[in-house]
Amino acid sequence: MTKPAEIRAHVLANLDHYLAELEKQLTGQGGTVVYLRSADEAADYIELLAREREVRVTGGAEGIRRQIEQLEPRLEDYLKGEPCVAVESVAIEGSGIGLAGAAFLIADAGAICLAGERTGAARPRVQVVLAGIEKVLPRMRDMAVFLPLVGGSDVRFLTGPRRAGELDGPEELYLILLDGGRSELLANQEKRDLLRCVRCGDCLPGQAGGRAVTCPVAIDIESLPLLLREEAPAEVSGWKFRLWGFVMGRPRLYEFAGQMLRAFWREQWGLPAPAAKTFRQLWREGKK
């Protein structure tokens, strides 16, 4: 077993101990730790917090829930191929409340590790960090083996809200620990190893590029995530897919639809503009 795998296995076997240590350290440094069951509960909690702090929330609890699912997708969804968002810090409204997803939690330091791009771009008054309960590590020095696995140009370790004498930084720091079915996975001997995942992304579709993947935390890549992906029902249905299938089955209609799209294209849609000429046009020109 690799060193990261050994440490992760040790953490999972003693998860209650390390969560209690993390909570004790972080609250001792001025942070607040909250345990919640699901993204829905977290969204309700954050909306209530925003209301208490008089911060306006665009889209209400539903908007917050969507952000939460991007920052902290359910472990099973992640392993089925839904990666976390690249920018791991978002502001709900102005700089009132900032939401971020943790890469790791460090028990002995009471620290939250954020890793990604521009993790410190927002400077909110209230910083809320979401994390699955499995993300805890025993000691700060464990970061020597785990940080290189997740990368990111910016790494921040939050060890509490701003302290006495500091002129900036969050006035309040909340760590929301999500169960999201993890305690059930922990009880399942067959699937418990999935919780070792540190979301390095190496095994995700498109990342491996056909090469053999060695999971740094020794998850059985060949069977466990594939098992989860196979369990998911194929969800290719609905009128959009039927329309797409109808158009794709009629070449002239497909070409006409492409011309219409080019003619009425608007930059405001925020989507990549279509190429000036279609493949079919280029093909015909090439044949002349």
Partner: peptide
Amino acid sequence: NLDELLGLNPRSFESASETAMVNGSES
């Protein structure tokens, strides 16, 4: 490297409210 920083005094992280490790910046 990071290993040397963590080996020197890993508890030093608790002495501040935040530690940032910056590798270049786009902004």
